[in-house]
Computed example of a mutant assay.
Amino acid sequence: MSSSCDPQHAPAGDVGAALMAIDSRLKGVHDGRTETDPEQRQLINQFTASLGPKGADDLLDGACTLIFMFMKWLREAHEAQDKDVIEYVVPSLVATMRMMRKSVRPEAIPTMAGLLVAAGTGLSPSLWRKQYGHWTAEEMTPLEATALLLAEHINRLTNDPDFATRMVTEALSRATGD
């Protein structure tokens, strides 16, 4: 039985732009920058403002696609070890988000946990979220943090600081080559 949240019905969005944003944040964290410098923040704000409503929706869908791809990879890696991705990944990410008080407000955490569970069970995070209405401004930073934490989790598991980015880039290359 097909679900209304089946990934085949979900728009992929602008995965490239979402990946670029996440990769930039990852590099900043690894360079020891915990805060975005004002110049980079201004560039990000200008870029976001230039997107318009359709571009912003595409960026959101792209971020959800990244979350789906990261959780799919993690699910397959955990299943190979006879482990449940929901049991081993979601609690750790939720605990980390709870410590990120400046970036992730407590009321956004259940939504982000739901996105992780949806993706971890093979559902589209974007379509899952749309069941409950439009994205709110307060959910934008937590959504970015969720994708960032997943990428960093994968990078730590593989002991490769660029693995998550490379995995998505290679998947995009294969998709455009087909």
Rank of each mutant, 00 (worst) to 15 (best):
S2E: 11
S3Q: 08
S3P: 04
C5M: 10
P7F: 00
P7E: 05
Q8Y: 12
G16P: 00
A17H: 03
A18R: 07
A18F: 06
M20W: 14
A21F: 08
L26G: 00
L26E: 08
K27T: 11
V29G: 07
D31G: 09
R33C: 07
E35M: 08
T36A: 11
D37F: 01
P38M: 00
E39N: 03
Q40H: 05
R41A: 15
F47Q: 06
A49Q: 08
A49V: 00
L51S: 01
L51Q: 02
G52Q: 02
G52F: 01
P53R: 01
L60S: 08
D61V: 02
M69G: 05
M71E: 08
L74E: 00
L74A: 10
E76Q: 15
A80P: 00
A80S: 15
Q81S: 12
Q81N: 13
D82Y: 11
K83L: 12
D84H: 06
E87P: 01
E87S: 14
Y88N: 12
Y88V: 15
Y88H: 12
V89K: 01
V89H: 01
V90A: 09
P91V: 03
S92R: 13
V94R: 02
A95Y: 03
A95D: 15
T96Q: 13
M99V: 05
S103C: 08
R105Q: 15
P106V: 04
A108V: 01
A108W: 01
A108D: 01
A108T: 08
I109V: 13
M112R: 00
M112Y: 02
M112Q: 08
A113W: 00
G114W: 08
L115Q: 09
V117E: 12
G120V: 06
P125V: 07
P125Y: 06
Q131D: 13
G133P: 07
M140F: 10
M140E: 11
M140A: 11
T141R: 13
E144I: 03
A147C: 09
E152Q: 10
H153P: 03
I154L: 11
T158A: 11
T158R: 14
N159G: 14
N159Q: 15
D160R: 05
P161R: 13
F163L: 03
G177F: 09
